[in-house]
Structures are given as structure tokens and as C-alpha cells.
């Protein structure tokens, strides 16, 4: 089966200049990444700040022009499209950003914001636009009477719902969420996570979740790609990667998630500069398992189904199990059941 989206050896470097305009090298934000997402798949791209995950998301939609590599959407190379052909394709690809205070124009009513992509892409006849906006608002859990209001009248969670309605209005096949719930408070975050899950299922969306929050990733994604300094170090089915991480960086990342006790010593040091990443395996400067070979030779992303870019992926000791405690047990689960509303009926896309 043809994947919906396929990235082939994609590279994006940002040149760095000093105050006098002299070249100071380049930030190697994305450095030879290949990935594919099947139709209906939910892929998470995880990693710490500066790993290149947001750049990768923008490159995938060609919002940023890559230096090298191919981006194939339904088998068609997006880099060969231009002008009207590319714009027509954009209807199938949308993005949701982190900050709902920055992503909505304060001078546009909710109705105008959600209608804009419909007008741009001519998705529905003019006469039907208002109905379609109302329908989108209901779908994301907002009352349609709110359509004439302005963004400042809404809370962060409601604004993110509006941003989601806007992204989904043109009926895209692929949606990228760049930290879509990171700016929200925990209780509101849960509402939006549930909403995204419902929408992905009901609309059959293909979704790329860019996130640093491994709990959210585990909850939503069916596959995970872990990035470090511009490269993918591990990729595989989410339950597999979480239960049996093969790359030492993935292990460190999982062990660092709070709520597991303080038994494991934290990873030492900071992420090196992406302008001059370490040679060989980029993680070797912080890796507890590093050997001479690791600083000399770039490890390839190898394996079937569950891939890891580590020379010693097959000989590492088994990963420590996740130590997430469950002290509340059955009593807490029974109490929490009162908070778990039945799935909202978002319905199928007409």
C-alpha cells in the first residue's frame, strides 16, 4: 500500500551568520530523515527542543523548503509542484500550532477564521459556508452561537478548539499537530486530547503529532519516531518503543519522565549545539554505553518494524521497565470513571 506521506532522505540546514554577515556554519536542523506514514496512521515525532522535530513537520508540508530529499504525498513529489497545483494540494494538508493565542488573528471573528480555508480552497459553495462553520464548531465541542465572537473572548482550551475547527474545515487528509496541547492546563489538555482522538477516528485522519510530552504521545500515537540533533534515532510501534526502547537516548528520555521515582540517575550534560554536532553517533557524548566506534562511525537506522540507530542496539542490556507507580489502585479508577464522559459523537465527514 502506498503511504499517504513519505519523506525520503530529507535535509534542512539553516545558515548561521555573525553580526558582520560572515558565515558561521549551519544549524543542521534536519539531517537525512526518512519516514513514512500510512493512511489513517498516527505518527508521533518526539525529542527535546532543538532536535529538529518542528522543522521536520514544516518541511513535510513544504512550509519550509528542504535543501535535499523528496516529500511524497499519495506518491506525488510535493517538491515538483508549484503555484496552483501546490495550493490545491494544501487543502489536503493542515497544521495545528502550539499557541492558540498566537495562531488566531485577533481581528477575525471565529466564523471568519474557520471560513477562511473554505473560501481559499473553494471547498463548499459560498451559500453553504455559514452552515459548514457551525457544523465544524459543533464537531469540536463549541456552541455555534459563538461564531460571531472574537478570539479574545475565549479561554486557551476553547481557542485551541477553534484552531482545530479551522484546520479541519477544508477536509484535509493529513493533519500535523505541533505541540497542540502543550500550552494547555492539565484538565483542559485532557479534553483536547480526547477531542483529537475522536476526530482522528471519526474522520479517518492521518495525523503527525509533534510533541515532547511522552504521556500524550503514548496515548494518541500508534507509531513513534525519536529525534536527536536532526536525526531519527529510533522508530517503531508506540507500545513497542515504550516497553522495549532500543536506543540509549530513548531509554534516557523515558527514564527522565517524572513520576517514576528518583532511582535512575539523570542523563548528564546538555544537548550539544546543532551547529557542530558530535561526529559519529550524535548521542555518544552523553551515552552511558558509548565505545570507540560510536565517535567514529555514524550508526544507521536498522531493523524491521522497530528500527534503532545504535551500533549496539542488539547487544545492550534489556531496558529498565517503566516504573510508573499506581498507588491509587482500584478505588481511584472507580472514582475517575465518573470523570470519563462517553465519546463525543463527532460523526463522519459529509
Amino acid at each position: 500500500m502506498t503511504p499517504l506521506l513519505e519523506l525520503d532522505d530529507v535535509e534542512k540546514h539553516f545558515p548561521v551568520r555573525d553580526a558582520l554577515g560572515r558565515s558561521r556554519g549551519a544549524v543542521r536542523a534536519v539531517d537525512g530523515v526518512s519516514l513514512s506514514v500510512p493512511e489513517g496512521g498516527v505518527l508521533a515525532i518526539v525529542g527535546e527542543s532543538g532536535c529538529g522535530k518542528s522543522t521536520l513537520g514544516r518541511v513535510a508540508l513544504r512550509l519550509i523548503e528542504p535543501d535535499r530529499g523528496a516529500i511524497r504525498f499519495q506518491g506525488e513529489d510535493l517538491r515538483r509542484l508549484s503555484g496552483a497545483a501546490l495550493r490545491a494540494r494544501r487543502r489536503d494538508m493542515q497544521i495545528i500550532f502550539q499557541d492558540p493565542f498566537a495562531s488566531l488573528d485577533p481581528r477575525m471573528t471565529v466564523e471568519d477564521a474557520v471560513a477562511e480555508p473554505l473560501i481559499l480552497h473553494g471547498t463548499v459553495p459560498r451559500a453553504r459556508i455559514r452552515d459548514r462553520v457551525a457544523e465544524m464548531l459543533v464537531r469540536v465541542g463549541l456552541r455555534p452561537e459563538l461564531a460571531r465572537r472574537w478570539p479574545h473572548e475565549f479561554s486557551g482550551g476553547q481557542r485551541q478548539r477553534i484552531a482545530i475547527a479551522r484546520a479541519l474545515a477544508s477536509g484535509p487528509k493529513l493533519v500535523i499537530g505541533d505541540e497542540p496541547v502543550s500550552a494547555l492546563d492539565v484538565s483542559v489538555q485532557a479534553q483536547v486530547v480526547n477531542l483529537l482522538q475522536d476526530l482522528i477516528r471519526d474522520l479517518g485522519l492521518t495525523f503527525i503529532l509533534i510533541s515532547h510530552d511522552l504521556g500524550v504521545v503514548r496515548h494518541i500515537a500508534d507509531r513513534v519516531a525519536v529525534m536527536y540533533l536532526g536525526r531519527i534515532v529510533e522508530e517503531g510501534p508506540a507500545p513497542e518503543v515504550f516497553a522495549n526502547p532500543r536506543h540509549p537516548y530513548t531509554r534516557a528520555l523515558l527514564a527522565a519522565v517524572p513520576g517514576q521515582g528518583t532511582a535512575a540517575p539523570p542523563l548528564e550534560g546538555d544537548v550539544p549545539s546543532p551547529i557542530s554536532p558530535p561526529p559519529g553517533c550524535r548521542f555518544h557524548t552523553r551515552c552511558p554505553h558509548a565505545a570507540a566506534r560510536c565517535s567514529a562511525e555514524v550508526p544507521l537506522l536498522l531493523g524491521a518494524g522497530h528500527r534503532a540507530a545504535c551500533h549496539f542496539a542488539d547487544t545492550l542490556p534489556p531496558a529498565a521497565p517503566l516504573r510508573e507507580a499506581d498507588p491509587g489502585g482500584e478505588r481511584l479508577r472507580r472514582l475517575q470513571a465518573f470523570f470519563r464522559p462517553p465519546p463525543a459523537q463527532t460523526g463522519a465527514m459529509p
Binding site: S187, A190, V193, Q197, R218, V257, E324, R340
Partner: peptide, 13 residues
């Protein structure tokens, strides 16, 4: 959300 996964929907307030 929990690292070990878990029942479909999150408790939401």
C-alpha cells in the same frame, strides 16, 4: 496520560 498506556479516554474535567 500515563506512560504505560491505559484505557482509551482520559478522565477529563
Amino acid at each position: 496520560p500515563r506512560l504505560t498506556g491505559g484505557e482509551g479516554r482520559l478522565a477529563s474535567i
